[in-house]
């Protein structure tokens, strides 16, 4: 929590914003973050400017835009344990703190990081035994790789599984120093978890990427 939360400026801004939006301001969508672009290879040639110099051609008529779907409803408040103040130097604690923040922000019920072998690295509010949940992450994670084989979709990195009428399990694959990891979460089906997951992935990567964070990585790096 930042120091802003108790500031008079924030309270004044909220009141003004209510006036700007009107009293009937309804709940809106969940957050969706654009992931930072990776350092890919440079393009072969400089891109062309989008405007020609001083041209005055009139714009061509354009087709009507397709109607957009309505945004999803507001995410529910999920009851989870109060946050633990984690200033620990231990990577496991930092990862758990990160998972806790992910669940708290995104309204998720639980989250876990597992490695490629199906071993749990860190967990928060795992719905079943951590070992079982980690194994499930690994199994679902392997299914993601199959997408490249069956569908030709090399870029697939997450899979969602409805586990009952209310909840879903989502596995997001990511790599740190070429070692695959899986972030597995469980949450209500109507929650759009992607944004929070993408946000947390960057944080998790930064924790795992520290040289001493994970034995396998350290060995690889050496």
């Amino acid at each position: 929590m930042s120091s802003l939360i108790h500031s008079s400026e924030l309270k004044e801004s909220i009141a003004l914003m209510r006036m700007l939006l009107g009293e009937d301001a309804a709940g809106e969508t969940t957050e969706h973050v654009v992931s930072a672009a990776g350092a890919g290879p440079a393009p072969a040639a400089s891109p062309e400017p989008i405007f020609a110099d001083e041209s005055t051609a009139t714009p061509a008529p354009t087709p009507a835009a397709p109607p957009q779907s309505e945004p999803t409803g507001p995410g529910p408040e999920v009851s989870i344990e109060p946050p633990e103040a984690s200033e620990s130097l231990y990577r496991g604690d930092q990862l758990e703190s990160c998972l806790h923040a992910l669940c708290h922000r995104g309204g998720l019920s639980g989250a876990m990081i597992a490695d490629d072998n199906g071993f749990a690295v860190a967990a928060y509010n795992s719905p079943v035994e951590s070992e079982v949940f980690a194994a499930l992450a690994s199994v679902l994670g392997e299914t993601i790789d199959k997408a490249a084989f069956f569908l030709g979709q090399q870029g697939a990195n997450n899979i969602s599984l409805d586990v009952n009428y209310a909840d879903k399990v989502v596995v997001r694959k990511f790599s740190v120093a070429d070692n695959p990891f899986y972030l597995i979460i469980v949450c209500p089906q109507h929650i759009d978890e992607r944004s929070e997951v993408e946000l947390s992935i960057e944080q998790i990567k930064s924790i795992l990427a520290v040289e001493t964070a994970y034995a396998g990585i350290t060995e690889t790096a050496e």
């Binding site: 929590m1 930042s2 802003l4 939360i5 924030l10 801004s13 909220i14 914003m17 209510r18 939006l21 301001a25 309804a26 709940g27 809106e28 969508t29 969940t30 957050e31 969706h32 973050v33 654009v34 945004p71 507001p74 759009d192 944004s195 946000l199």
Partner: peptide, 15 residues
Amino acid sequence: DLRQSFPASTFFSTV
């Protein structure tokens, strides 16, 4: 904090 404090429709979901 801002998402928690302001009306829900204040902020775009995309960041």
